[in-house]
C-alpha cells in the first residue's frame, strides 16, 4: 500500500490487483460526486497521457482502464512493463491537476414508466409514500452522470438517485430482467443493457438499445456521459421499438484474420 498525494484533496491508495494490475482506490463507502469527477478525469488522463506510452510503439501501456464508483483499475502486460515501472506511471498521472472540463455527451433516454414495462413502480411509490406520477417526475427531472459501465455489456451505473427514490432491492433476484429496463437499488439507479438476472426494482423501460452488436458503434453510452430520462407513452415506446429494430442489421460473418500475437 502506497499512499499517494495527488493535486486534489483526494488521496487514493494504490493497491496491487494481481501482478499485472493496480487499483487506485478512493476508499469511500458511498457515492461521492467529487470522487466520480476525479475518477473520470483520471480515466481521460490515463488514456491519453504521453508519459503512459510505450517509447517505441507510442501505444498506451494500459490494456484495460476500468472505472468503478470509487476506484479505477489499470492493467498492463507484465512482459513489457514491470510493476515498479507501472507504479511510476500511475504516480505521474496522479500528480497532475484534475481536468476541469470533462467531455461527456448528454444522452436523452426515452422511458415508458410503469405498467408491464415497469412492474415495480406501484410498490416502490407506495413504500416511499409517493404517487407513481411523483416518482416519474422525480426520476426524470434529474440529470445523471454515467459513473461506470458493467457488470455486463450495456449495464449503465448512474450517479445517486433523488433521496425520495431510495429503495432496497428485491430480496431474491428475478431470473430475467429485459434489456432496456430502468431500475432502482438502494441509492442507485441504472439501465439494464442486456437481458440478465437482476434484483433491482424495475420502474420503466427504454426502447433504445444501449448495447447492440449489429450497430456500427455498438455502445450508446460511455462512462462520463450524462443521461436524462424523457418520459414517453406506451404508444411512443412501441413506435420507437419498431424503428430501433429496423436500424439493426443482421450479423455479417467475418473471416478470422491471423496473427494478432
Amino acid at each position: 500500500m502506497i499512499p499517494i498525494r495527488s493535486q486534489t484533496l483526494l488521496r487514493p491508495e494504490i493497491l496491487p490487483f494481481g501482478e499485472a494490475a493496480f487499483l487506485i482506490d478512493f476508499k469511500a463507502p458511498h457515492f461521492d460526486a467529487k470522487i466520480t469527477n476525479h475518477i473520470h478525469s483520471l480515466l481521460a488522463q490515463f488514456r491519453t497521457d504521453s508519459t503512459c506510452q510505450d517509447s517505441t510503439s507510442k501505444n498506451s501501456v494500459w490494456i484495460e482502464i476500468v472505472p468503478g464508483y470509487n476506484s479505477l483499475l489499470v492493467t498492463f502486460d507484465p512482459q513489457t512493463l514491470d510493476a515498479a515501472q507501472a507504479l511510476t506511471y500511475i504516480q505521474n498521472v496522479l500528480r497532475r491537476p484534475e481536468i476541469d472540463q470533462l467531455t461527456g455527451k448528454t444522452i436523452e433516454i426515452p422511458v415508458c414508466y410503469g405498467g408491464t414495462l415497469g412492474p415495480d413502480i406501484e410498490s416502490v411509490s407506495k413504500n416511499n409514500q409517493l404517487t407513481p406520477q411523483d416518482l416519474i417526475t422525480l426520476h426524470s427531472e434529474n440529470s445523471y452522470r454515467v459513473c461506470m459501465m458493467g457488470f455486463v455489456p450495456g449495464f449503465t451505473f448512474l450517479s445517486e438517485a433523488p433521496k425520495a427514490l431510495h429503495h432496497p432491492r428485491h430480496p431474491a433476484p428475478r431470473l430475467k430482467v429485459p434489456a432496456g429496463s430502468i431500475g432502482l437499488a438502494g441509492w442507485q439507479t441504472g439501465i439494464y443493457g442486456l437481458e440478465t438476472p437482476g434484483g433491482w426494482q424495475i420502474i420503466g423501460r427504454t426502447p433504445l438499445r444501449i448495447f447492440d452488436v449489429t450497430r456500427e458503434s455498438p455502445f450508446l453510452i460511455h462512462s462520463g456521459d450524462h443521461v436524462k430520462f424523457i418520459p414517453i407513452t406506451r404508444k411512443e415506446f412501441d413506435a420507437l421499438l419498431t424503428s430501433e429494430a429496423q436500424k439493426a442489421t443482421p450479423h455479417k460473418p467475418k473471416t478470422f484474420k491471423q496473427g494478432r500475437a
Partner: peptide
C-alpha cells in the same frame, strides 16, 4: 459489516 460500492473485477478475482 462493510459498505461497498461496485468496483472492477478481473478473471481470477
Amino acid at each position: 459489516p462493510i459498505s461497498m460500492v461496485s468496483g472492477p473485477l478481473l478473471p481470477g478475482t
